[in-house]
Design a protein around this nucleic acid. Structure first.
Lengths: 150, 150
DNA sequence: TATTGTTATACTCTATAACTATA
DNA sequence: TATAGTTATAGAGTATAACAATA
């Protein structure tokens, strides 16, 4: 005798059981909320701004094109987001001297500090997931997500 | 002697390695693209419209409030989405006779057909993931996502 | 001609406040 | 006074076309 799984809500979601995109969308509500509480609201950063700070910090002199490709983001959007980061003096854009079409990106000192502070805050915030996942489950989840990421 | 993992891109993402929200965001690019190709573009459905069709089909006479709670969506957004589904004659809204504040939702016959057709199309579309995940991995991934979904 | 990036624009998504009607 | 839902509105996210500068 097996008992049916306890429903997570009053509504029957079983038609969507096999749909991975639905499970992803439901789960990302949780990770988005954790981001907003630990980084978004206290530090005034949006998810994509946070991500760009980390990527530019780890990849000094990268170009907007490379970032667009990695994040699958259209170039005009990247321009606008970087405009905001420049305005707040967290990022510098400099022309490449050999190919004057490309712009190379670096964090300012303040941007660098914010990158470190925000990633630390998010690591702290995501510790709330320890109540839901064991360390092994969390590692496994990350590995499975990496497998399906483009 | 171990070899370092092959980079997925030319950019170093290691600062974001421990961040589950980042892995979620990257992976959802893939599932979103699969949705758009198999359901969004051919059937003219947005993700949330697809989801509502499935949930209303499985839960006839449910209310907007219940759907908002499950999907953690503000009520005004639900109103607008349902307006579009009503306009296309896929959903009916009827006043509850006992509590005339609440509206009870049902699919029309055409809505019901579309719900079945679209969920089948998405199951087909998500078979592309079989190249990236084994059946066991896929089941595991879904279970781990359900654990962190609010 | 092709590439990097910008400007302009439009459409969708999300969140909030103020409102109507029922209870 | 509280609840279900709507209207109005604004801000953020996303996509595309047309453009400028450089190669």
């Amino acid at each position: 005798m097996t008992t049916p799984p306890a429903p997570r809500s009053l509504l029957d979601e079983s038609r969507l059981d096999g749909i991975l995109g639905y499970a992803m969308a439901r789960a990302s509500v949780t990770t988005t909320r954790l981001f907003n509480r630990s980084v978004g609201e206290p530090l005034g950063l949006r998810p994509v701004e946070f991500t760009l700070l980390q990527l530019i910090e780890a990849n000094p002199d990268t170009t907007q094109k490379h970032l667009c490709e990695l994040l699958r983001m259209p170039a005009p959007q990247m321009t606008l987001i970087l405009d905001r980061l420049l305005e707040r003096d967290w990022v510098r854009r400099e022309r490449d001297q050999k190919d004057r079409r490309t712009l190379r990106l670096r964090l300012t000192e303040e941007g660098s500090r914010l990158a470190a502070q925000s990633v630390e805050a998010l690591r702290d915030g995501e510790r709330a997931l320890d109540k839901l996942l064991s360390p092994g489950e969390r590692t496994l989840l990350r590995e499975l997500l990496v497998k399906i990421a483009g």
